[in-house]
Design a protein around this nucleic acid. Structure first.
Lengths: 221, 221
DNA sequence: CTAGGAAACGAACGCCGTTCGTGTCAAACA
DNA sequence: TGTTTGACACGAACGGCGTTCGTTTCCTAG
């Protein structure tokens, strides 16, 4: 009874709620302030409402994050050129990039069979490229499985590096010092190969090459 | 002033707190009641104390989970027999198994360079096997990187299946129905290869074979 | 003009991780 | 032996969180 009902017209006509704006707002918050800031309350506040209002369009926080993941995957370009292997590498790299750009989304992808519209488009495209490479059906199917797993994992790893880096110091430098201090008798290989372990280079591309070459040399069953 | 100070001797001499018992208790709770039940308060209650007491031995919940991960990795048998490839497969499979047996621990491993004692032992052993296979230093180093990433990812995936399965219905069956309902013009490969996509078989072993074969056919740089 | 139903939302519930300040108690020292 | 000290233990609280319930608001269809 204390607050006089301020006319809604006082402010510039609040945009109506919808699943889409909620997902978009979630991505904005995630990108701007990180995973910890992505709370239902925070999303609601950004939309100038209360948390309860979100639950009309979103079942749980997890549901929201799944939707955000698929929205992020909409950015993956499905076509490029070159050999089928080059196109497959490009596709996988793009998917990794899209997922790693938003902290925490990759983790959502790790525990679930892809069902989002855009995830399925990527999957479909991957299957096409593998078939173009001459693989039999089952090998191609198992291969997309493995590729998706790798893409999600690589994105998760990359995302945490992007996040934790430059706070205090490089995580790699810390690990390097840790490895340097290991007892050589208990960890002979690590101490012996320490330089190689931290050798610079494009590991991501190498990893994709490993997967593709491995798939070509390993028929299913 | 209401509760008379019950003698500690009334109960069977409470075990003293320590980092180890906290970690062990955490693992018990995780295995018995799942990731959601793994709260500081719950661990404290199990140890018949308050949450504040844990912070003498554990810095954060994350610190606890990292310690739990390394404790779980202590169970990985480091030796087996056969060719170096067979031993490498066995080692990777054992590590995956150990991590997947405890829901959520694999996720901890995904975003961090391994630094735990037991994780490093596994890593050292892997390096030794790869060198035994005749790989050069850098390729071996990059290979353990990839293998660890895969092990963590595969464990994370496996753990979520173990958890979510048999509640309501199989997740795979749900995905199968979803794929069956897809429009064939937008997702031609998925609809065409649906049978292959859900073909049964030992995918885990095949994936490890892909990695090993790929590594052998893909020198670093 | 009214009835009905979907959307919005204020308030609350029962949790959570973590911190602070105060007790407790055994070992170390005088 | 008496006293100090410092590590450990912990009760209480802070400021959050996800989610639900019951009510109010408002648009639409009749």
């Amino acid at each position: 009874m204390t607050t006089p009902p301020v006319s809604r017209r006082a402010r510039p006509a609040k945009a109506p709620l919808s699943r889409d704006v909620i997902v978009r707002t979630g991505l904005e918050i995630l990108d701007r302030d990180g995973l910890d800031a992505l709370t239902m309350r925070r999303v609601a506040k950004e939309l100038d409402t209360g948390p309860a209002s979100l639950y009309v369009y979103v079942a749980h926080r997890d549901d929201l994050m799944t939707a955000m993941l698929d929205a992020a995957l909409a950015q993956v370009p499905l076509a490029s050129d070159g050999t089928w292997q080059e196109r497959l590498r490009a596709l996988a790299a793009a998917a990794t990039e899209a997922m790693s750009r938003h902290e925490g989304l990759a983790a959502v992808a790790l525990g679930a069979i892809p069902t989002g519209d855009n995830a399925l488009l990527v999957l479909d495209r991957m299957l096409a490229l593998l078939k173009e490479g001459g693989l039999d059906d089952v090998t191609a199917a198992w291969a997309v499985d493995l590729l998706f797993l790798h893409v999600a994992a690589a994105a998760a790893e990359q995302a945490t590096y992007d996040t934790k880096d430059t706070e205090e110091e490089d995580a790699i430098a810390a690990a390097d010092r840790r490895y340097a201090a290991l007892p050589a008798d208990k960890y002979p290989m690590i101490t012996g190969l320490r330089e190689a372990l931290f050798a610079p280079g494009d590991r991501a591309t190498w990893q994709l090459n490993v997967l593709i070459n491995g798939i070509l040399h390993t028929p299913a069953r």
